[in-house]
């Protein structure tokens, strides 16, 4: 099976029920989907943001990006999947890992 829609893949990565930093997920997706460049990077981050404001991910930890891992001076977020996120993932036929 080929690549699935990006948000499906993001949810799938969170199905291990561990907390992940946004920059870890973004760079993982960038590699898998061959999406280089700042514009595409931000668009993946926006997808994570949408999933979070849709209640499928919850923001569990933040830190200031001092070293410029993602964007210097901005916030880095660490997310975990919510129960609602798990329900929507299983609707999308994603398997628990």
């Amino acid at each position: 099976m080929g690549l699935r829609p990006i948000k499906f893949r993001i949810l799938e990565l969170f199905l291990d029920e561990k907390a992940h930093w946004n920059y870890e997920i973004v760079s993982k997706i960038q590699n898998e989907y061959d999406m280089q460049g700042n514009f595409k990077r931000d668009s993946i981050n926006f997808d994570i943001l949408e999933l979070a404001s849709g209640g499928m991910l919850k923001d569990v930890e933040q830190k200031v990006d001092e070293e410029g891992i993602y964007k210097q001076g901005f916030l880095l977020h660490r997310y975990m999947i919510t129960d609602f996120g798990k329900t929507r993932s299983s609707d999308a036929c994603l398997r628990y890992v």
Binding site: P5, L11, D47, G54, M56, D91, A92
Partner: peptide, 8 residues
């Protein structure tokens, strides 16, 4: 929309 990109 919950699980896809709005543009698509």
């Amino acid at each position: 929309l919950d699980i896809s990109e709005p543009d698509a």
